[in-house]
């Protein structure tokens, strides 16, 4: 049962990831592209956390406490490495998001469109 649940969650996350890549590749609206990029990033982060999970009961967070022995701590605690990775990836993802949104908004203010195809034409027109 638990392995079925794990496989189900993992496949859902992978489906979200591929959905995100598909959206980034096929939509031409920049805002939609940014939203799909976010969905993809969140799915990948969740997947990382899931990889660090450990199938024991009861499972501990990776925080050492005085009232449990060190051996028990080692046999119960989840993997801290993916958590440390995701922790910074989330904030950097948010910063990247801010930058992309800012560019899209500024382009809309200057040219009145956020469509990637129109954007290419406008930029080509400015060059020539």
């Amino acid at each position: 049962m638990i392995s079925f649940l794990l496989a189900y969650i993992t496949l859902t996350l992978f489906a979200m990831m591929f959905l995100g890549i598909y959206g980034v590749a096929t939509r031409s609206n920049l805002i939609k592209k940014i939203i799909m990029l976010n969905i993809m990033g969140d799915a990948i982060n969740m997947l990382f956390i899931l990889i660090g999970y450990r199938l024991v009961f009861p499972v501990f967070p990776p925080i050492y406490e005085k009232h449990i022995t060190f051996r028990e701590f080692l046999s119960r605690a989840v993997d801290p490495v993916p958590q440390a990775l995701v922790l910074t990836a989330v904030v950097i993802g948010m910063a990247m998001n801010i930058l992309l949104t800012t560019y899209a908004i500024q382009f809309y203010r200057l040219h009145g469109t956020v469509d990637a195809r129109d954007m290419a034409e406008i930029l080509r027109g400015e060059d020539g």
């Binding site: 794990l6 990889i51 999970y53 801290p80």
Partner: peptide
């Protein structure tokens, strides 16, 4: 992921790197 389990999901054992940090 499901048949071959390449990610090593749902294992009771810890990866050696995680165990080192813990």
């Amino acid at each position: 992921v499901t048949v071959k389990n390449v990610l090593g999901l749902g294992e009771a054992e810890l990866r050696p790197l995680g165990e080192f940090y813990l």
